[in-house]
Amino acid sequence: MKKNDLETQFAELKTKVETLSAESAENKLSMIVFSGDMDKVLASLIIASGAVAMGMDVVMFFTFWGTPILRDKGKKVGGKDLMGTMFGAMLPKGACNVKLSKMNMGGMGTAMMKSLMKKKNVASVEEMLAVAGELGVQIYVCEMSMDLMGFKREEMIAYPNMDFCGVATFLEEAKNSKIQLFI
């Protein structure tokens, strides 16, 4: 084979490798947290922190019923319209207010589960959120859910890596991730 042919082939291969590596998924986990149930959100945070431990980057998108989890119970904001005030009052205010998806039994089941978790040293949703923040898990909050439920950015928790976005941001992240989950 001639030297010129080899050089052309090499250049072609180089371009191919560059394109492939640009398209290949990053060592990343993208998760949608749609649920606002305590058990499901806890599971999502456990998976997120585990993934960081395994050396992955983690991105979590909180949308719909997942959004109120990120509210800060200590923060009060005014200037909401009637619907916003109603939603604000009816939806859980922060991670300590969420209920089990099953066996809630008017709050009794959730209370029992919480005390059991404490006894068995299982981290609560609030504690796991703090762990996720420490580990550098990126949280995105769905802007549309915020607007729909009348939440203001000022009433959300002070999480180190929290941004507000729409579906395109999630899809871009998910496209480049090895694992995508919907919870």
Binding site: I46, S49, G50, V52, A53, M54, G55, K120, N121, V122, A123, V131, L135
Partner: peptide, 14 residues
């Protein structure tokens, strides 16, 4: 000791 999932793996990775 006494720590349940996921903390052992999270802590050891740190």
């Amino acid at each position: 000791k006494g720590l349940p999932c996921p903390m052992p793996v999270v802590k050891v990775s740190k």
